[in-house]
């Protein structure tokens, strides 16, 4: 039962400075072993935090219970740019140093909120024929910024961004998504299988993820390129009907 009150409560928790725990969809840095093992292995040495050239990795605070001192990435503010440096410095193997290819990283999975995504809105407006608000605009930012465009994220119907299982969870799309007041993409963490750990914010979107993830059948790469090249208006016949009166009838009317 969601109502105004629960929403207010959630917002309160999300904005309380002492409760980062509820606020953040935190990801572990790339290459992190699964969360339980990670908590056992990570000695909180902060080497990964120091080496990250983009300041993507943060250090968890005391408020976050025993997580204190462990590294995390909060992609809404600063995504991971997959430079693959942090896993090489980890002294205990909490981040797997054998990972060298950016595309093998699975930090999380991006989930697009279809109600607020500008492209989805645009599509809906187009389907209905009229732009109700007059503000529909095409965005596709996420598609453009993703380091694995056309494999991690594809445009269905050439307009609707859809995440596939190639998504690394780097969160660049989430960082750059321009929709307001809330970003239309959340990354939900891979290493945190227990729902509570991702906080309210993550749980809300996870529900959508289930009926939204349909990577099969989506075109990407070479296939998509071919498909795009096939678009050609020269010999295609428009299949709509004229709904205006023909000339003869007009004459008839004039004759009357």
């Amino acid at each position: 039962m969601r109502n105004k009150f629960t929403e207010m409560f959630e917002n309160l928790l999300n904005s309380n400075p002492f409760k980062n725990y509820f606020k953040k969809n935190r990801l572990r840095p790339p290459g992190a072993v699964d969360e339980e093992m990670f908590m056992e292995l990570c000695i909180r040495c902060a080497r990964c935090i120091e080496v990250c050239p983009y300041d993507s990795i943060r250090r968890a605070d005391l408020y976050e219970k025993l997580q204190i001192g462990t590294p995390y990435v909060f992609p809404d503010d600063k995504a991971c740019y997959l430079c693959m440096r942090c896993m090489k410095v980890c002294p205990t193997g909490a981040l797997n140093p054998r990972l060298t290819e950016g595309q093998d990283v699975r930090m999380g999975l991006a989930v697009i909120n279809q109600d607020t995504c500008l492209n989805f809105k645009y599509y809906k407006d187009e389907m209905e024929g009229v732009s109700m608000s007059g503000t529909a605009q095409l965005c596709s930012t996420c598609y453009n910024v993703c380091p694995y465009t056309d494999s991690a994220i594809v445009l269905e119907k050439f307009i609707l961004p859809v995440i596939t299982d190639k998504c690394t969870g780097c969160g660049i799309c989430a960082e750059k998504c321009p929709s307001t007041p809330k970003k239309s993409i959340v990354i939900y963490p891979e290493g945190m299988p227990i729902e509570e750990k991702a906080g309210f914010y993550g749980r809300k979107h996870r529900v959508q993820a289930q009926d939204e993830k349909k990577p099969e059948g989506a075109l990407h790469g070479e296939e998509l390129l071919n498909q795009k090249q096939k678009i050609d208006g020269s010999d295609a016949k428009p299949d709509f009907e004229y709904n205006m009166e023909l000339y003869e009838t007009k004459d008839e009317w004039q004759n009357q």
């Binding site: 292995l41 990570c42 000695i43 909180r44 902060a46």
Partner: peptide
């Protein structure tokens, strides 16, 4: 790094107790 663990060039140094714990 910090005094939990640090590296100088490629040589890694870690607090033995920290590593033993993990």
């Amino acid at each position: 790094g910090t005094f939990y663990s640090m590296d100088i060039g490629d040589a890694a140094i870690a607090d033995p107790l920290a590593v033993f714990q993990s």
